[in-house]
Amino acid sequence: DLSALRVEEVQNVINAMQKILECPICLELIKEPVSTKCDHIFCKFCMLKLLNQKKGPSQCPLCKNDITKRSLQESTRFSQLVEELLKIICAFQLDTGLEYANSYNFAKKENNSPEHLKDEVSIIQSMGYRNRAKRLLQSEPENPSLQETSLSVQLSNLGTVRTLRTKQRIQPQRTSVYIELGSDSSEDTVNKATYCSVGDQELLQITPQGTRDEISLDSAKKAACEFSETDVTNTEHHQPSNNDLNTTEKRAAERHPEKYQGSSVSNLHVEPCGTNTHASSLQHENSSLLLTKDRMNVEKAEF
């Protein structure tokens, strides 16, 4: 173990290094160091905050020279020094078990990766560091076993998940096959086929009936047209017969005018059967003409 005197000496050296690497504005270890034209180094955030307070150039807090945003430059070497100082402080805390008085939040800088452990060898070769390295080497064999167990647990979990997924996939297939086998029997399929065939026959029977009705309507229309044509021909046949009657009536009127007047009046009210309204109107006109002729003949006879 380190003596108290040596611990104090190391602590004083760390404090001196820390004062050199402090920012003059925030009085902390410089984060993202930036250098000016006057070779003074500050935190990048502190300098941008200072420049944004005034429009135009501002003055350096140490030498009062003008500073602009374009004049600022990043210093990589200074950032490396800060990183190495942080590593020294971490090693000091691990070796002594004491917390550094002016320690900052170094938890963000710590890294437990194997590459980081290899890099620590180049920091300080001390008894405390050696003991700590031995402890780490002793704890390393235990870690692979834990990793193997965790991997086995994960693989077993994956296997159970896969088996569950396969079961879920197989179950719908089985149910679907069961439904297909038990849903419709052979008799049901035959009945469905016969039902479809009967429906098709009914459709075939319905369509000819409609065509037959249309044919019957067409035949009825044709018969009505033929009947009207026969009526017209009958009226045409009746007209010459009426003319013959008129000639006979004229002759009778010349011989017996008194008797014919009474008979002509009675004939006005008689309509021949089986004739249309057109034929009756023609008869009325003929009878009126005959009456006028008879009157003329009677007057001539009187004179």
Rank of each mutant, 00 (worst) to 15 (best):
T247Y: 01
Q125F: 10
S280F: 00
N234C: 00
V121D: 14
I30N: 09
S219G: 11
L48P: 10
L151V: 06
E9I: 04
T149D: 12
L81Y: 05
S280L: 03
S216E: 03
C46K: 15
E229C: 01
T247F: 01
P57V: 02
C23E: 15
F106R: 09
V270M: 10
Q205A: 07
K259D: 09
L51Y: 08
E249Q: 12
T163Q: 14
L217T: 13
E84T: 12
C90Q: 03
G199I: 00
Y129L: 08
P240L: 05
K222W: 00
V270N: 01
R212T: 05
L62W: 12
L164Y: 08
Q201I: 01
K87E: 08
E110S: 10
G128T: 12
G159F: 01
P114S: 02
P33F: 12
S280T: 09
D66R: 10
I170K: 09
S264I: 03
R251I: 02
C225K: 15
T166C: 12
G159N: 12
I124V: 06
E115S: 09
T277G: 03
I14E: 15
V153G: 13
Q80F: 06
G262H: 11
V7Y: 05
S58R: 05
E120D: 14
N276H: 00
T292N: 02
L203V: 10
V265P: 09
G56F: 10
D39C: 03
K259P: 05
A220D: 03
S266F: 00
S139R: 08
R162K: 08
R130Y: 03
L137V: 07
D66Y: 03
S288L: 12
R130N: 02
S139I: 03
I41R: 10
I89R: 10
S79F: 07
R6W: 14
K221N: 08
N191F: 00
N105S: 12
E84Q: 10
Q93V: 09
L21P: 15
L117T: 15
I67A: 04
G210K: 12
D200Y: 03
P114R: 12
R212G: 09
L62F: 03
L27M: 11
E299Q: 14
N52H: 13
K31V: 13
I25H: 05
S197K: 01
V7C: 07
G128N: 15
V121C: 05
D39L: 02
L155P: 13
A16S: 06
E140P: 13
N267W: 00
D66A: 04
S281R: 14
S156F: 05
C23Y: 15
S287I: 02
S219D: 06
Q125P: 10
R70I: 09
K109E: 06
A133V: 05
L117V: 02
A16P: 15
E84P: 06
S35T: 10
N234T: 07
H284S: 14
